[in-house]
């Protein structure tokens, strides 16, 4: 087992941020942690990466207990924090080299590792460029390379594509796939993006209020949601009893009122429910403004398990707003 977490608990005073979570990540697996802000994802990842002490329970990284042998655990894992923390006035190579030294990589291995990583993240020709001149996507790739300078087997990434444009996101995904294949990495990733989790992860754990509410492969999670199809329909001036009528249609497992006369209907048989729904509307003389049918997505899984929309959480406030630098008043 690459990662093993046993009934792990984190308390801050009276507040319990993580309430006894257990899971295991197999070698070579890509494991996703999904959850809204404040769900305890970051606390969980920080306990696993030795950044904060564990209140109760144990976590093992490649067999090393993070509380007992933190340095051994640290040597086995690469960690990419959410914030971009490479020094902007150092060059790409200097950033990598300093981290290699912090990990105690010997000189020869250091040189080779940096060459290989620059090649892998496609930054070889930017090697001597100051980091300030790189785009957001390139900086993220640099951070990914930085997390791998000591050739760890286990890789933690905290929201690796937050703040990137769609093209850069896809580039990061592809690179992660390539690195995983080349180096046999086990990856634990937290994300807000369902498409990211769906595309990258072998298994996904949904965390809410400090607890694991679901854990399975993306496909199994989708199957577990009642209703395989989602029909989103918006009406013009719907009558009061429409909600009840929709719920009574054959195959419909749930109807959510989204407001503004918009309903989200989950069904086990999308095409039949769609036909029935349109017929019902015609019979009642209610005009349909819009209608869409789709298969269950991880969004639906997420809403099902947490009762919340993840999309609303996707736009995050920056963690810190830096005050202006030259405000010295000696």
């Amino acid at each position: 087992m690459a990662i093993q977490v046993e009934r792990i608990v984190k308390r801050f005073g009276d507040f319990t941020a993580v309430k006894g979570v257990s899971f295991q990540v197999a070698d070579g697996e890509v494991f996703g942690l999904l959850g809204p802000n404040g769900a305890g994802k970051s606390t969980l990842i920080r306990m696993m990466t030795t950044l904060i002490p564990i209140t109760e329970g144990r976590a093992f990284i490649d067999g090393h207990d993070v509380a007992e042998e933190p340095d051994a655990a640290r040597r086995c894992m690469g960690v990419i924090p959410q914030a971009l923390t490479s020094d902007i006035n150092l060059t790409v190579e200097e950033n990598l080299s300093i981290y290699a030294k912090l990990y105690g990589v010997p000189r020869e291995a250091r040189k080779r590792a940096i060459d290989e990583l620059l090649e892998a993240v496609d930054l070889t020709k930017w090697r001597d460029a100051e980091t300030r001149t790189l785009s957001g996507g390139m900086r993220r790739r640099l951070e990914i390379a930085r997390g791998l300078v000591h050739s760890p087997r286990i890789f933690f990434l905290d929201e690796p594509t937050t703040g990137l444009d769609p093209v850069s996101r896809v580039a990061v995904w592809e690179m992660l796939g390539k690195l995983k294949a080349q180096r046999g990495l086990t990856i634990l990733i937290t994300t807000h993006y369902m498409d990211e989790a769906d595309r990258l992860c072998d298994r996904i754990a949904i965390v809410d209020h400090g607890e694991l509410v679901a854990l399975d492969t993306p496909a199994a999670l989708k199957r577990s949601v009642p209703g395989n199809n989602v029909i989103e329909v918006q009406f013009q001036a719907p009558p009061e009893d429409l909600h009840g009528r929709l719920a009574a249609l054959p195959g419909v497992t749930s109807v959510q009122d989204e407001g503004a006369a918009m309903f989200r209907v989950l069904s086990t048989d999308g095409s039949r429910t769609t036909t029935d729904l349109v017929e019902t509307a015609v019979r009642m003389g209610v005009e349909i403004k819009s209608l869409s049918v789709q298969n269950t997505t991880l969004d639906d899984v997420f809403v099902h398990y947490t009762g919340r929309q993840l999309r609303d959480e996707a736009v995050k406030a920056p963690l810190f707003v830096m005050p202006p630098r030259p405000g010295m008043q000696p």
């Binding site: 990466t49 030795t50 950044l51 933190p70 340095d71 640290r74 040597r75 894992m77 960690v79 924090p81 959410q82 914030a83 923390t85 020094d87 981290y99 912090l102 990990y103 105690g104 930085r146 963690l319 810190f320 830096m322 630098r325 010295m328 000696p330």
Partner: peptide
Amino acid sequence: VSVMIGGGLLYIDDKARGVHEGFLVTPI
């Protein structure tokens, strides 16, 4: 003044930016 800027301002700014988080996950 050099200590105030280097040891005070830049140090806390690094901390706030998460640079120290990066150091702390290494075996230093």
